[in-house]
Design a protein around this nucleic acid. Structure first.
Lengths: 186, 186
DNA sequence: GTCTATACACCGATAGAC
DNA sequence: GTCTATCGGTGTATAGAC
């Protein structure tokens, strides 16, 4: 039940394994256990499906990170929680992370409105700006700082995923790498 | 003349704009100014073309970075030259960089032998290992350090590309971000 | 809403002349 | 080596019954 959801789940799995175009809608329908035509009842075109999946996962990521920002005092604490939350989410939802990765580095990204992308990263921008103003983060171009933050997060995530660490070790790596990042930015 | 080269160039341009699968071989041939069948004389299948293009660009990247390693004294100097060389190459060859980006984050990557990938990154690994041994770089897992190095390089590159800086400003950003990276790793 | 059946466009790859 | 012509397979999307 909830066939829409089943379609999204099957599409996610197959897209990550074979890529967007190498995955026919017929296979997605089969994997979801529904008829071919039913897919087009929920998503008028294949592109609509791909984009809906992207927006769906992106909003899950945001919801996850937003929760963690509450009730923290220092900027370092807030940023660290944001960092851990992002990494832990990605570790827990590897396939979703891989999809975002693939989507972001494909021409599909151009089909998403710029504002849509901006909305997702705005909370961190605010945090960083505040940090610069309070002289705890280095006075550098905000986009540059953001680039370093996201680049770091992204690559550490890939590092953790490939290594298959224990939960404890994972937590330690997240701690250690955050300290390194913090050292660089302050 | 050299139709093989023309095919690779046209493929590069179209792949980056539309993606691998959304680019038919017929369009590549048309863009290259050759007949449809001629493409398959040089590349038996479309996959062969994609992979040949990847290997071609990768070897260009390696040749570029290798030149810069010679005749340097300290590790910091060597690493900085490697860093600058990589970034300057990517800035100069945006389309090629975008292709590598797209390819690396696609299921195509699985079609490349692991050794092939390893060969490309080995020189940096050697450098980093030496740095750890000599106690100039922090004693951390080498893969973790490599992840931070490449993640940093990658994201700073995207930052520079989106900004459209002057040559001078570009050089300054490269300098500054390397110092930050160095600060983090040592 | 969901299914089956199918239209029809398109693309990768081949055949064969030159 | 390079071209033209074309085939066979496949994939998106629709039509229409239930």
């Amino acid at each position: 039940m909830d066939k829409r959801k089943r379609i999204l789940e099957s599409a996610l799995k197959l897209f990550v394994e074979f890529g967007f175009h190498a995955t026919p809608t017929s296979k997605i329908a089969k994997e979801a256990g529904i008829a071919n035509g039913t897919l087009f009842y929920f998503f008028p075109t294949k592109d609509d499906l791909v984009i809906a999946l992207y927006l769906d996962i992106k909003s899950q990521m945001m919801a996850n990170a937003a929760l963690e920002i509450e009730n923290k005092t220092t900027l370092k604490e807030v940023l660290k929680d944001y960092y851990s939350a992002s990494l832990n989410w990605a570790i827990k939802h590897k396939t979703k992370f891989r999809f975002i990765e693939q989507f972001t580095n494909s021409p599909y990204l151009n089909k998403i409105a710029e504002e849509e992308i901006q909305a997702h990263i705005q909370p961190i921008y605010k945090l960083l700006k505040q940090g610069i103003k309070n002289r705890v983060i280095q006075k550098l171009d905000i986009d540059m700082i953001f680039a370093m933050l996201s680049g770091h997060t992204f690559s550490i995530n890939q590092y953790i995923i490939t290594k298959d660490f224990s939960k404890n070790k994972q937590a330690k790596v997240i701690d250690d790498t955050f300290e390194l990042l913090w050292k660089m930015l302050t």
